[in-house]
Amino acid sequence: MTVLAQQLVLGLLIGSLYGLAAAGLSLVFGVLKVLNVAHGELIMLGGYGAFWAVALLGMDPFAALALVVPAALVLGAVLFLGLFGFVMRADEETRIKNSLLIGFGLALALHALAVQLWTADERSIPTPYGGAVITVAGLSLPVVRLLTLALAFALIGALHLLLAHWRWGQAIRAAAEDWQAALLTGIDVRRAYLLAFAMGTALAGAAGTLVTIGYSISPSIGLEWTLKALIVVVLAGLGSMLGTFTGGLALGVAEAVSAAAFGGPYREVVGLVIFVVVLLVRPRGLFGR
């Protein structure tokens, strides 16, 4: 019983990062109707950014967020202006399909680039807090992973507040709901798209940093994380960031349960099966409201 409870807790901890990873994808998909399948590679880049910040600059791993997030914001703006911005003129179906292809090519290129820069080895960041563990009711909670959960939740909360109250956050929501009406109220919709894409990339960078601190990364984790984020988006739908975060926790728990029931190697399968089933039940209305 304690073993299962322990698994569930660990599932919740990793699930918070699934939620954070999915939030960026969901923001970009919901606002721009662009499906960026290179999202996982952006997470991977964020992770290596943090790795560099710690290894080269000697920063505290969590403080690396302050460097990685702004850098990812800029990278996102560049990617939008250089690549994804060009598909925005097409109608929605062509836009999603072309963005998928662009993301696909970008994913391959970024993966190859990461192998060149950092080799194919798995890496993680040793934290000063090391392997400290808190024990509550017989469950051991690794301090570092608790911190990543707290930070993931804080970031989601900040995003939620930005979208609700910041002027441009409201503009982003308006553009997501009806871009023509947004233009007619004087909103620079293209800039709202640029901001949303940059924020989505920044979230990917933050997720990558936390993944590297609490777990580990390698150049090939991109596809896995893109799929995780897609699964969560499918589970939680679009529109609510807090809902997306909850969806991430749910996926973490589902994986833990399936690992307990069918054995560790099937951890990855459960999410994919959920994903395919939901897709098949709601083939069109999936991402709609």
Partner: peptide, 9 residues
């Protein structure tokens, strides 16, 4: 599934 949804499915 249509279009991109067929692809990710």
């Amino acid at each position: 599934l249509r279009g991109a949804y067929f692809a990710i499915g």
